[in-house]
Each structure stands twice: as C-alpha cells, then as structure tokens.
Amino acid sequence: MIEVLYDKSAPLEKTFNAHRLLGSKVLSPEGLVVGRVKEIRISPDDMDVEGIIVSRGWFKNTIYIGKNYFKKLSQESLILSIEPTILIEGREVINFEGKRLGKITRIERADTTNAIRQIVIKRMFHQEVVIPGKFIQGIGKSVILKESYDKPEAVQRT
C-alpha cells in the first residue's frame, strides 16, 4: 500500500521505476543495439531527467545521450529517435557508383549534436581523405556519398 502525495506531477500509475531502466537496452530506431543504460542523469535545478549514460561494453567509450534524442521509454528498453552518428566509425564509404573509397577512421560532429560536420576515411596504401558531411547521401551498413562528391573541388586531403 503506497500513500500518494503529488499536485501537478503525473500520477504514480503513469510512471515507472527508473531503477528498472538501469541495465536495459538502448536501441536506435532501426534496431541497432547501442548499449545498455548505465546511469540516469537528472538536472539538480528542475529535477528532470536530462539524459542517460550508455555503456557499450569492454574497450568502447560510454556515451551520454540527451533526452531530446529519446523516442520511447519502457521498462524493457530505451528507443532513441536518432541513429547515433558516432557509431559509424569503421564503416565502408562508397561513392554513388559503388566504388569503395575507404573506411571511416574519425567522425567530426557539429558540436555535441548528432549532425556530421565531416568524416575522415582511409584506404590501404592511400592518404586519409576528409569528406564534408554535406556529401553524405545515406548512412546504412555503408555510407553512400552523393553524386556531387565526385567533382574534383570536393576532395580535400589531410
């Protein structure tokens, strides 16, 4: 039997125990398992949940993800509204004709957002190449570049 005391907050039955979220899966909208909830971070000013820290396993960096990237929260998992671009490191980059250009070695984002400012790719026996984010057409198992990337002025070498 729980005594309830609240005024403008949601009633007890419309909330769930945040402790149960610890250790649950964090999924991208396409079902990629990003990691598991390690911590729930709360603002000390307004006592709201501001984000989570995601553990990704041994030898991988943990990630702090802000609540504006949350789509759905349940006792089973947290589903994000974004495909985290920090996870595309190591993916193959291909041009619009399917030519393999190299693998992503580094991602530079716009500040702390999920938007990609540029990526750095490397192919064996070749120099690293910087590709501005505006030339990315799609991100899936590989990163596919727009047709406009093959114009000579688009290429920047590191």
Partner: peptide, 23 residues
C-alpha cells in the same frame, strides 16, 4: 563499380534479433 538494388532482400533478416514495440 557495382549493381545497386532498390530493395533490402528479405533473406537479410536471417540472424537478426526480433524486438517487440517496447524493445
């Protein structure tokens, strides 16, 4: 350099995990 498909072949789902709507 390649042949591009319009689809993701259905057989690609083999080995994938299945989640309900709550994950």
């Amino acid at each position: 350099h390649a042949v591009f498909l319009k689809i993701k072949p259905a057989v690609s789902v083999k080995g994938m995990k299945v989640f309900d709507s709550d994950g």
